[in-house]
Design a protein around this nucleic acid. Sequence first.
DNA 1: ATGGTCGTGTGACGA
Length: 266
Amino acid sequence: MEESVKISSWNVNSIKARLDHVKRYLQEQEPDILMLQELKGLDFPYMEFEAIGYHSHAVTQKAYNGVAIISRFPINIVLEHLPGDKNDEQARYLEADISGLRIINIYLPNGNPAPGPKYDYKLAWMQRLYTHLKSLRDSNIPFLVGGDFNVILDDKDCYNPEDWEKDALFLPQTKAAFRSLLHLGLYDALRMTSQAPEQYTFWDYQRGSWQNNEGLRIDHFLLSPFVADMMQECHIDTTPRNWDKPSDHTPISLKLTPHPPFLQKS
DNA sequence: ATGGTCGTGTGACGA
């Protein structure tokens, strides 16, 4: 029996509205580390997760954004904001050392409508992310970035590419900025195991998108080379999108083989 | 072409 550490990421579209979903997911799927996005409120229910054996840490703001890490291992916080803009108050970034591995949880700006100030903010945020990840790479720190990237990489990652041509998630500049992250030597975890189309992580609440499987692949894991070599598998779990009152996103998960001194379960 | 759905916090706004 091979030991492994399971890491999942899920945009829950409000932790208050989805607390029971998150607890059910922890019970049924037993991730060791769960990264959450779009908490949508100041409060975070730390005690709820402590009661079932998880550490947790959240970066929140009123009404919008918000990210958290829930973990079986202790969480050592490294950063609560993406470097590069001291005036950026938005709760979109959390970086931590967990059992020796650098874990980065992001909620990358949506950027619509494009062009406009929201799209400028998205592109600037991606440039800041590039600069920061490059510094980690150049310091030889193994890391994993997970979360809602709000980037559709390829035609096969959306149901009707022509409809998305002018969208901030699919514009050439957006894809180029994402690919520049890959050019740092990072791996798109899902694409290490499958090239299949329609591996969606998001379905809009409107127009019966879920029923018609009109989704998007916008939640991703990027792995530095050392972590990529630890990866056993990566998949998208669509079952929570079918639960009552679901989030519009569903979790993506991967399994890593612990590699001393990283991710030892003791 | 338009409207269609959620969540926050209670009026728009973001997605």
